[in-house]
Design a protein around this nucleic acid. Structure first.
Lengths: 333, 333
DNA sequence: GTGAAAGCGCTAACAT
DNA sequence: ATGTTAGCGCTTTCAC
């Protein structure tokens, strides 16, 4: 009736069919006369018609989009997880849009709420979001999956890696090399990963009698470099770094101080970033299953999208120690 | 009339006002009686009402969203540009959604067309997109800005860095150190940056009589490492790498071959990634104005969003050589 | 200043 | 198999 001059109406008019038919053809419905379909496609091409996804979303209640939240898009760790997630989504014809919370950590919840009305599902990497806020997200009634952390008492599918066991194992290895005084160059205080990793160290301290203290960093190369000065005041024989970036920064700072790694002091990283293999010395680290995190995350989300309840609470993904050149026997004192 | 039980209708009903008033209050319109506004806000809180952004977008034709396309979200270079862009957008109350084309480089145009119907503006980092496709994007009648490349004959605002001059200067510096045979570890063949950087080397070859050949990489650490074997068959005294990642990979490979950098061979990077300062040796590189690219990109896009024509074609952003430890005098032969 | 009502461009019953 | 039509939830003229 109304606007025959635009959008789907124009196509319908030109092809001599109803807008319903055009809609069916665009959706790839099989129940359309091939001859008509051809006419529609011809009209679509001629008018260079492109459906308005916003209108389709409003009408159908589906967007074929999943919204992802990450703390910092420039962090290769998060980016890699998202990339794997995106691949899974794409295979089911969903697109991934990623939003970043770095600029306004306090607005994390607001960002999520606002995303929620435009997507079919949510994937959250929000290591520092409070369980309370996480629970609020759960009430949003948008299928949601939480990556990279496990919170008991939050009714959302989650998947994370077993940082604790891996760190414990890493400490065990260091103890075997004779290390007894270490400093942990910690990551963001509230982050789940940081807490788990520290928990591993604390456990090792208890079991193996390791003497461990903490110096804070924010998980970047620069902060790793800058934290060394304070770390060395504890006279450690090894530096356990929150991640590989911090480790590279720390090694650079040790080099500045004429200390050899691992001769004078050992250094470990975490995450097994590509980088860690190519620096000198190559970094002893822990493989974080980033891709797997994304893949499993997608599976969980997809189940939720299809209304299935997750099969079984997924186990913690395994993280394994990778020994390389940055660690060695503790120097005799 | 209809559904008084949901959304804005429910709020209006509870507050005893019309949905128009609710809409006005949500939009922060000043022309609303303060007492009424208070009642509305109270109802909003009570019902935990959150406007549906899709419906608002359809009705208003505005989404307060700009869509960004990047080749690979795990590449810190692109991520940093996007982050700066995002900051600019946020300051004007626009959100940035980023999509990735890596999984389907051939579908780049399709991704953009599909994004186009859900955003107010587009920011493209698409180094390998053909000018023809770029021109098609220009016809989409969505404000668009192209980052990180300059194509004559495409009617879209663009901003890029002066890769050519910087590379020429870098070569000049190497020539001054006595280098005369170099291998360029090139990036993606079609990418604008790669073409510009190679153009700089080619120019240097002509002016300074530099002997330069090319070995391909895809711009990653791994490919940089793997390209060295072939590069060394040319017996270069210096390796000019497409970017810092390739340089780090190359240095690792040279180390494997017991070659010292810069003693036996010099290596240069590009982009001045944080990383390049913290590896050993620190890498001689070129500052790519990533943040500035994002900032200027936002300015251009914002002008387009507000219907202004860009003031003046923005100049190429300056890129400057940063000399560090990975380069030195050519070995005497 | 506030409300009524007409869309935004499409999808999905439902009727044919 | 195709067309008719009523919305999807909101914004925005246009009267009041």
């Amino acid at each position: 009736l109304a606007n025959s001059s635009k959008g789907i109406y124009a196509v319908a008019k030109l092809a001599g069919v109803s807008i319903a038919t055009v809609s069916r053809v665009m959706a790839g419905s099989a129940t359309v006369n091939e001859e008509m379909a051809a006419r529609v496609r011809q009209a679509v091409a001629q008018l260079d018609y492109r459906p308005n996804a916003t209108a389709a979303g409003l009408a159908s209640g589906q967007h074929r989009t999943i919204g992802a939240l990450v703390p910092d898009i420039t962090n290769p760790y998060f980016a890699t997880v998202m990339q794997a997630m995106s691949a899974g989504a794409a295979s089911h014809d969903y697109r991934l849009v990623v939003g970043e919370s770095r600029l306004s950590p306090s607005a994390e919840l607001a960002i999520v709420e606002d995303l929620a009305s435009q997507v079919d599902g949510l994937a959250l990497i929000a290591p520092r979001m409070s369980p309370a806020d996480l629970r609020k997200v759960a009430t949003l009634d948008v299928p949601t999956v939480v990556l990279n952390r496990i919170d008991l008492g939050v009714d959302l599918p989650m998947v994370g890696a077993d940082n604790f066991s891996a760190m414990l194992e890493l400490c065990h290895y260091l103890v075997g090399l004779g290390h007894s005084r270490v400093v942990y160059l910690a990551g963001p205080e509230q982050s789940w990963q940081n807490r788990e990793r520290w928990r591993g160290i604390a456990q090792a301290a208890k079991i193996f009698g390791l003497d461990a203290t903490t110096v804070e960093t924010d998980g970047t190369l620069e902060s790793g470099h800058d934290a060394v000065a304070q770390a060395m005041t504890h006279q450690p024989t090894a530096l356990i770094c929150f991640n590989d970036l911090v480790a590279v920064g720390a090694i650079a700072a040790l080099r500045d101080r004429q200390l050899s790694v691992p001769g004078d002091i050992s250094v470990t990283g975490f995450d097994n970033a590509v980088l860690s293999r190519y620096v000198e010395p190559a970094i002893t680290t822990v493989t974080s299953p980033m891709q797997q995190l994304g893949t499993v995350g997608w599976q969980l989300l997809n189940e939720a999208l299809e209304g299935r309840r997750p099969e079984a609470p997924p186990p913690l993904l395994e993280a394994t120690v990778v020994i390389r050149g940055s660690t060695g026997p503790a120097p005799r004192s």
